[in-house]
Computed example of a mutant assay.
Amino acid sequence: MKRSIYLLPLLFFCFKLNAAYVDTVNVYSNSMRKDIKTVVIRPQSYSTARKYNVVYLLHGYGGNYSSWVKDAPQLPAKADEMDAIFICPDGGFSSWYLDSPVDSTSRYETFVATELVQYTDSHYSTAAGREHRAVTGLSMGGHGALYLAIRHRDIFGSAGSVCGGVDTRPFPKNWNMAKVFGDPVTQKENWDRNVVVNQVDHLKNGELQLIIDCGTGDFFLAVNRELHQKLLDLKIDHDYTERPGAHNKAYWGNSIDFQLLFFKKYFDRTTAKI
């Protein structure tokens, strides 16, 4: 027993970069009347005497609250490097992070942009204000992150997408989307109104700091290129990158490092040391 006590400080020192606190909590959604599991990663420096920036990470179709930690195991070390809190909520199997116009039990826009942010700010030592919050995600979560940030610019100051499904309309029979958007023929307006590529019409330059990337072998490459071109046409500043890779965890497990660096620079520019 004594031997274990003496070994623990050595192990802590050797793995200091991975010393962040990783917890799973239940966050109650009043809009959906259920608990939603959420992974919370706090940096090793965490103290209630300080205030921390927050990055929300949204998983893809078929994933859950634990997907980001599994696919990007470097996240605890990144939380330490950024001195920030990461929040990874369960976004449902195929919610696309909407308040569904056809399913009143699927209210993931309300949950993430309102209920989860309120929970995070009331339970952790976070810095208040949009300039202290960023949101990104992969695939379905990439759609969700941009969709939520554009619609809630008072909540998020920066947003990203990793191989995101930023226009769902070319894929009407895929990923159970009809259960969320409605019938693609008879309820076409639901699809047109709720895709990211059309949401950017409401965005003005400088309102959000945006980073978007997609692999050159990804089936979402064409819709990401379309979004990039539309942002250029609207003269909305953004970072856009294509790099070799497909729609898989190898790609987003690597890409998230670049997105987090982008967010760190955003936080450093817009906030004084807390």
Rank of each mutant, 00 (worst) to 15 (best):
Y6M: 15
F12V: 15
F13E: 07
F15L: 15
L17Q: 11
A20K: 06
V22F: 00
T24W: 09
N26Y: 12
N26F: 09
V27S: 03
Y28W: 10
K37H: 12
K37Y: 12
I41Q: 01
R42F: 02
Q44P: 03
S45F: 01
T48H: 08
T48D: 11
A49E: 14
R50Y: 09
N53H: 09
V54L: 06
V55M: 04
Y56Q: 07
L57Y: 01
H59V: 09
G63D: 05
G63H: 01
W68T: 06
V69T: 13
K70P: 11
L75H: 00
P76Q: 02
K78N: 14
M82R: 02
M82W: 02
F86R: 00
I87C: 07
D90C: 04
G91V: 08
G91C: 10
G92D: 03
F93K: 08
F93G: 05
F93R: 03
Y97I: 14
Y97P: 10
S100N: 11
S100I: 02
S100M: 08
S104L: 13
S104Q: 13
S104G: 07
Y108R: 07
V117E: 00
S122V: 05
T126Y: 00
T126P: 06
T126F: 00
A127M: 13
A127L: 12
G129M: 06
R130V: 04
R133Q: 06
A134F: 03
V135L: 11
V135I: 15
T136Q: 04
S139I: 06
M140E: 01
G142P: 04
H143P: 07
A145K: 00
L146Q: 01
R153Q: 15
R153A: 03
I155A: 03
A159V: 15
G160S: 10
G160Q: 02
S161Y: 02
G164S: 05
G164Y: 00
G165Y: 04
D167M: 01
R169S: 13
N174P: 04
N174R: 11
W175F: 15
P184Y: 08
Q187P: 11
N190Y: 05
R193I: 07
V195A: 02
V196F: 10
Q199R: 12
D201E: 15
K204A: 15
L210F: 14
I211G: 03
D213R: 02
A222M: 10
A222C: 06
V223Y: 02
L227P: 01
H228R: 10
Q229P: 05
Q229K: 13
K230F: 08
D233C: 10
L234D: 06
K235F: 12
D237V: 15
H238Y: 05
T241Y: 14
H247P: 11
K249Q: 15
A250Q: 14
A250T: 11
A250W: 09
D257Q: 10
L261H: 10
L261F: 08
F262D: 15
F263P: 06
K264S: 08
K265V: 11
K265F: 09
R269Y: 13
